[in-house]
């Protein structure tokens, strides 16, 4: 049953050299993504979620660079490909959706021109076929009168409609994986749910795997199969969504879950995690979460915990390792 995962990230490290030394934005993360699976990536701002996404698709902005590790797409390394070879993977095999639909579309080209150019770049079809395909895609993402709207410019669409167009664009060459970087953050709350459901539906229909980057646990709970919780450039906990939400192992995840308001909850106040995430240039030695952790031990100040299996999830915490060992693993 060990089939090759669609995407496999192995010990990935991303650095930003600055005048005051090298900042480690991503410090050794590993995860797999199966075909058609939805992986949620959550964390606070600056935890490295977006950087992970951009590193996978090979669009890190210089001076940012991959300093180590591997990214494998269906078992083939893609992190060391040439610009030209990587360009052919982008859009064709890995698509990406950005946060702000208002600025993701080129204002001077009709959406038809943008979709058709993308299709023609990746697929061996005629202009006519590309056009038909564009119409079909727009219909699929719920744009009414799609054939007419092909000639409309982005400013003639509302924010939610533009994000639908963006989704159509990201999916127009049938990629196997879509990285959605906070696809709903810039949208109206009432539209957010629609867009998430649309993304979920379209990806399920096309068998596309999704790496859904967000800080909205609600979205993750509704959409994702598995979730990775990131903290200070590392994965704190990763596992099936149900387990992570219902039975979080890592103290950080426990804190995160406590901070989600619920309608049926009986707490008067939401719990909060004291302090804030360390800046990249002042990550403490040992476990990065140690200044904020209520269960902190001596070891946490000395050594970095690695991910250990804990039930169906894996968590990077010495406390979890201890409990698991005591339980005889």
């Amino acid at each position: 049953m060990t089939q090759t995962p669609l995407l496999s990230v192995r010990d990935l490290r991303v650095e930003f050299p600055t005048r005051r030394g090298i900042l480690k934005a991503i410090d050794g993360i590993s995860f797999d993504l199966k075909e058609g699976e939805v992986l949620g990536v959550v964390g606070e701002s600056g935890a490295g979620k977006s950087i992970t996404g951009t590193a996978v698709i090979g669009l890190l902005e210089p001076p940012g660079r991959i300093a180590g590790g591997e990214v494998l797409l269906k078992g083939e390394r893609i992190d060391n490909l040439s610009q030209q070879a990587m360009r052919k993977i982008r859009g064709k095999r890995i698509g990406m959706i950005f946060q702000d639909p208002l600025t993701s579309l080129n204002p001077l080209f009709t959406i038809g021109e943008q979709i058709i150019e993308t299709i023609l770049t990746h697929l061996p079809v005629s202009e006519r076929e590309a056009r038909d395909r564009a119409v079909a895609l727009l219909e699929e993402v719920g744009i009414p009168a799609a054939a007419d709207r092909l000639n409309a410019y982005p400013h003639q669409f509302s924010g939610g409609m533009r994000q639908r167009v963006v989704i159509a664009l990201a999916l127009c060459a049938e990629p196997e994986l879509v990285i959605a970087d906070e696809p709903t953050t810039a949208l109206d709350v009432s539209v957010q749910a629609q867009i998430i459901r649309l993304l979920q539906r379209v990806c399920r229909d096309h068998g596309t795997a999704v790496m859904l980057i967000t800080h909205d646990m609600g979205v993750i709970a509704e959409t994702a199969d598995r979730v990775a919780v990131m903290y200070s450039g590392r994965i704190a906990e990763i596992g099936p969504v149900r387990n992570v939400i219902k039975a979080p192992r890592h103290p950080y995840t426990v804190g995160l879950m406590g901070a989600i308001p619920s309608l049926t909850g009986d707490h008067d106040r939401l719990t909060q995690i004291p302090g804030s995430m360390p800046r990249l240039d002042s990550i403490p030695a040992g476990c990065a979460f140690n200044p904020r952790c209520s269960l902190v031990m001596d070891k946490c100040y000395r050594d970095r915990p690695d991910l250990v299996q804990a039930g169906e999830s894996r968590a990077a915490c010495w406390k979890v390792s201890e409990t698991e060992e005591a339980a005889g693993r």
Binding site: R90, G91, G95, F98, S104, P107, F109, T121, L169
Partner: peptide, 26 residues
């Protein structure tokens, strides 16, 4: 540096088209 150029890159458009069509026109 704009999002639409980043998105054009993420769609794997040809570098030439990104530079001389999408960026230059703007």
């Amino acid at each position: 540096r704009t999002d639409y150029i980043k998105f054009a890159r993420a769609r794997g458009l040809r570098q030439r088209s990104i530079n001389f069509r999408h960026a230059l026109k703007n």
